[in-house]
Every structure is written in structure tokens, then in C-alpha cells.
Design a protein around this nucleic acid. Structure first.
Lengths: 347, 347
DNA sequence: CTGTTAGCGCATTCAG
DNA sequence: CTGAATGCGCTAACAG
């Protein structure tokens, strides 16, 4: 019963049934005004009867544009990237584009192949969260279609990107802890080869300088890639005699690993970190989280890309850099042992 | 510098440069053995020099298969669905298919249009998590391509599906609470029009019958759609003088809403629910969670679909129903006020 | 081992 | 208002 490869009805079939040429069918489906109401109805009737659907593949070939944009993220299971994807899809849909999504699974080596595949499928543009720090394959991709980077800036590439206020967010959150009198704050960070890692460390450091406090290098632990490695790093730091009095984590997974380490040993320590996450408000921990709208990163990236797609004939404008703002969210510690009844303080 | 619509080099261009016909280029790129090593190298050189990429759109048109399958989920921001999507992509990639992903945003009304669009783009098959209970549009889609349902069963449709052990999981988790002596367990459920909602209530109810306990209808609250509505429902239940002594929640978002309600009033109540979630182990609440591998749902669905794609010529086999197993995870309450040092009990 | 012919389904261009 | 011819980029099928 199901149609087979190359088996569905074509415009010719519809035309035959409606007693017109394929050309007229094409016009009707395109809402071309130059068709009589009468034939128009006959065509629609035939379309319905056959369950005809226009072949967008053939249409793309003829028109020279697929109507698709590609999105490459590093980890769709991370809510950050799934929100970003939703933002991209929202704007893409508004502008009549479909989104072709691929996940690089944080393996930088897979990214070039993924991108080549998307280009082969005639995406008209790409939004990429680069998995690694080498970007020559992106330069190659730009020979075919416009590329917009998300969450990480171009390195040796001239193209648009959408970033979070990494430095500023890290600065602010760290400053909160420092203002409360903490001077031994541990830094749990992702690999510094990643832009976000480096930039957030810079903010952490700058906040210390501004407060006239020298960060202790022994408390800085970079290169963490997931909650498990973060948990081990936090374990190690917390076991020291001269341990930290507060923690700073550069992303949601690292925060979660650190929280698990704290929970295991029954320690309550103020924790600051990038990315808000589900249930952060009910952990009963003093949290200072740098929050931002991940959907908005996707929306902005899609807007930059589609804008370029609409002005492809013109001289390409200078590359743009858009920044999505952060704001600090604070959650209080659980008031008592079993909290009595008061909601946690803080905004 | 970037290539424009219909602007990239074609096989003819490559052929001209390599001094062969387009046909030979096609053969080289397809790894056809019948080409001399010499010309093969010339062709590859020309490909490199031009940055040539084969046009998969044209190829699809000619070959009659796009190499794409469509996935429609209801809410990509829910980790359940993003994991499912990763599972689909994993298997799809193994078999040389790409995944075209769309999000229906839980709006059943958008689903038909989304599916039509995917069919227009020549997906060879569809995996759908139906947003609503009406499925005629899926019957229409099946006229074009095979359709596999995920997480929800077909209603009046003859097709494959992959389900979770909804009944069994709900039964087991409820039985745990009952075995601990709870007889007033509140049920916080999604709309019963959804299969999962109905089935999980059935499991909840059956566990009560098995234990010889009559569930209190006043404690059953269905129709919850997100964490916020669940929180309000839990608020209402917990404020009653004759409130529940434990809660059962039918999915992760409802659990999170209920947990927030508990936290607000400083109440510690055993909570059972479907779906494990991040940090469930560090909340210090007695949790009984029905966990399962969401990726596996996606993998199985993709396998069923691709299996059908590979046997399209043959008589279509009877529709299959695959079930993904659940297991119950238990987390203990936080030992003391500030936990001293013992990790929480439970597996 | 390589080239020529023809056509996948559609839409632009030009005739009527 | 409608139709016929032509070609988008690619590849089976058939020459040579």
C-alpha cells in the first residue's frame, strides 16, 4: 500500500487525472494567479484523490535552493544544546527553512564529515557549535555556504558568531562569592582549549584582581569534560586539609558533579557556576548561577544566517558578533535541617 | 567567495578539468572498480582543486531515495526526547541514513503540517511521537512512507511501535510504596487521553488492588501538562487536612513540580515517579523512580523502520510492538539534618 | 576501461 | 489562460 522509491504520483499523474498538463498543476500548486477557477478546482480534486505531494527534492534541484539549513551541536543530550536547537528551528521555520540537525557527540574528529554531509545535502547555510579548536574544515565549508558559529568564536575565520557573556558572567558570579568574604574559591573548569573555558577562567581571575585577592593556583582544576570527572576533581579538592570555602564551576555538568561530591560528604559549600539547571532551587545549597537564554543563542544565530542568505548577491557585510546577556540567579541554603516552611530566599 | 545557488562546480566541471566525461567522475566517486588508477587520480585531483562536493539532491532524484528519515518529537527540551533523538540518529547513521528532526512543541495541530513537510522532502520513513490522540494524519502519511510510533501506540493504525513498560513500571513503583505501608498515595498524572497517562494510572491502580487497598479518588489528579501545573496540584493536595502520605508522578516534569511543592513547605514525603532525572540522587528525598533507556527507544524505533525500508518490495510483515524494559531506582532520604558523611542508602 | 543517451520531477521561458 | 520544450545534477543502461 505504501508508495515505493520513485513510486509516488507525479505532476503528470495529477495532470492526467485533471485533464491538464503538468505545467498547469505546477501553477496551481504555486498559487499562480493565471489559472481559471475551474481548472484550479479540478487540479485540487485530483491532488486529493491521489494523495499527491510535491517533490521538494526535484523542486530544489530545479530552483537551486534546498530550503534547509544545517545545525551541528556537540551534545544534544545537554539541555543547553537542545534549547539552542529549538531556537534555531523557531526562526528557521518562520522564514520557511527546515533544520537538518546533527550531533557531533563532542568528537571533533567527526565534525568535518558531518559538515561535508550537510553540504552534500545542499543545506543553504550552517550553524555550528565547533567541537574542537581547529577550524580549517569550517573555512572549507565556507567556500560552499555561509557559516555562523554559536557559543564559540571563530579562530582565524571571518564569519558571524553568537556568544554568551562568558567573561562578564564568570566575573559577576565570582564577585558575589568574594563579596561574601570567600578568598579560597576552587575553580572547576572545562578544557581551556575551549573558548568558554578560557574566557570563564579569565572572568574568575579578573574578579579576584578587582577584589585584590590572589587566586590560589592549587585550587584551579581545568580539563573537566563531564559530571564524573568533575566529581572526582571536587572530591580531591574537598579532601585536602587546606580546601576551598567555595566552588566555581564553568558549566552545568561540572556543577552537577561538584554537587554530588558535596552531597556525598555532607558538606554545604557555596557554589557558583555557569548554566542554570532543573531543580537548582530545591537543592538546599547556596547557589549562584549564571543563567542565560539558550534558545536566544539559537534564534540569533539563525537570524544572522538567514540575513546572509537573503543578501548573498550583495557584497558580504563585515562579520558580526552578537552577545547574549547573562544574569545571576541566587538560591539560598536550606534554612534549617528539615526546612520549616519558609521558601528559600534570594531571587 | 562563497558559492551561490546553483553555483557550485558540477561533475562536468570536474570532468573538464580531469579531461574525462562526467560519467567517469561519477564512477570514481562511487568507487566503481572499472576505472584505471591513472584517471582515478586525475579525477580526485580535480575534485580537490575545485572543492567539488557531490550534489545529494540530484543524486536522490535520480536514485529515488533521499537517504533521510524523519523524526517528530513533542518536546526536544525534555531530555527524554533528546535522548530518543540521539538513539535514532545513532542507528540511522550506522545504516547510512540522515535524520530530519522536527519538534511539534506538544501542539497536536502542528503535527500534520510537519509530517507533510517531511514527506515533501522525501524522507523515506518516519518515526513519530504523536502529540495528540487523533492519528488519521498518520494513516495518510503511511500512504507515502512507513511510519513507526515511539512512546505511544497506534490507535486504529496498523504499524510498528516502541513502548516503555508503562503499566509494569507504574505497578512496581506503586507496589514499593504500598509495601512500605503507605495507603494514601496521591496520583499526579498527565492527561489520560495520552496512552502513557492512562497506562500508568492503570498500573498504579492494579498495584493497589493487588495489595487489597482501595485508592482514594480524591487523591487522583490527572491532566497535568508541566512542572508548574503539577506544582499547583501538589500544593492543593498537600494543603488538605487528610493529605497523602506519599506521591506518585507520571513523568519527570510532574515529579519536579511536586518536589518543588514539597520543598516549599519543608515536607519530606516519599515520592515515586516515572523517569529518572539529573541530580535525583542528591535531593535528600526518598525517591522511587521508574528508569529506562530513552536512547534505546530511539534505537529500536530506527531499527524497526530501517528494517521495513529494507524489505519494502516483499509483503509487509505484520506490525510489531517492541517494549523497552524499566527498572526501579531507589534513593534514600538524607540521613540527618546536615548529612554527616554517609552516602545515601538505596540502589 | 570510457563515453553517449536518456530521464528522475519540477519550473522557467517562450509560444500559442 | 494553457501547453511544449528545455535543463537543474546526477547515474542506470547501453554502446564502443
Amino acid at each position: 500500500m505504501t508508495a515505493r522509491r520513485g513510486g509516488g504520483p507525479t505532476m503528470h499523474d495529477v495532470g492526467k487525472l485533471a485533464q491538464v498538463s503538468a505545467m498547469t498543476v505546477s501553477r496551481v500548486l504555486k498559487n499562480d494567479p493565471g489559472v481559471s477557477e475551474e481548472t484550479r478546482e479540478r487540479v485540487f480534486a485530483a491532488v486529493d484523490r491521489l494523495g499527491y505531494r510535491r517533490n521538494e527534492t526535484a523542486r530544489s534541484l530545479r530552483l537551486g535552493g534546498s530550503g534547509m539549513i544545517g545545525l551541528v551541536v556537540t551534545n544534544l543530550a545537554n539541555p543547553f544544546y537542545s534549547r539552542l536547537a529549538l531556537g534555531v528551528q523557531e526562526v528557521a521555520t518562520e522564514h520557511g527553512f527546515r533544520m537538518l540537525l546533527s550531533n557531533s557527540a563532542e568528537q571533533a574528529g567527526r565534525e568535518p564529515g558531518i559538515i561535508d554531509g550537510l553540504i552534500d545535502h545542499q543545506v543553504e547555510g550552517l550553524i555550528v557549535v565547533p567541537a574542537g579548536s581547529r577550524q580549517q574544515h569550517l573555512a572549507a565549508a565556507m567556500r560552499h555556504v555561509p557559516v555562523v558559529l554559536a557559543a564559540r568564536p571563530p579562530a582565524g575565520l571571518d564569519t558571524d558568531c553568537v556568544l554568551v557573556e562568558d567573561f562578564h558572567g564568570a566575573f559577576e558570579a565570582t564577585a558575589c562569592l568574594l563579596a561574601e568574604g570567600h578568598s579560597r574559591i576552587a575553580f572547576l573548569g572545562n578544557p581551556p582549549a575551549l573558548y568558554t573555558g578560557a574566557e570563564r577562567l579569565r572572568g574568575f581571575w579578573a574578579a579576584h584582581e578587582e577584589a585584590g585577592i590572589e587566586p590560589d593556583n592549587a585550587l584551579i582544576h581545568q580539563g573537566l569534560v563531564d559530571a564524573a570527572t568533575a566529581e572526582r576533581a571536587a572530591d580531591e579538592l574537598l579532601d585536602r586539609p587546606e580546601g576551598p570555602t567555595a566552588l566555581f564551576c564553568t558549566n552545568n555538568r561540572i556543577s552537577q558533579g561538584a554537587i554530588r561530591a558535596l552531597y556525598k560528604r555532607g558538606t554545604v559549600l557555596p557554589l557558583a557556576g555557569f548554566d542554570d539547571f532543573d531543580l537548582s532551587d530545591v537543592l538546599g545549597l547556596p547557589l549562584t548561577l549564571v543563567s542565560y537564554d539558550a534558545d536566544e543563542i539559537g534564534r540569533q544565530a539563525a537570524r544572522l544566517l538567514i540575513d546572509r542568505l537573503h543578501h548573498q548577491d550583495a557584497e558580504p557585510p563585515a562579520s558580526r558578533r552578537v552577545t547574549v546577556p547573562t544574569r545571576v540567579i541566587r538560591h539560598g541554603a536550606r534554612p534549617g535541617d528539615h526546612p520549616s516552611s519558609a521558601p528559600p530566599p534570594g531571587a
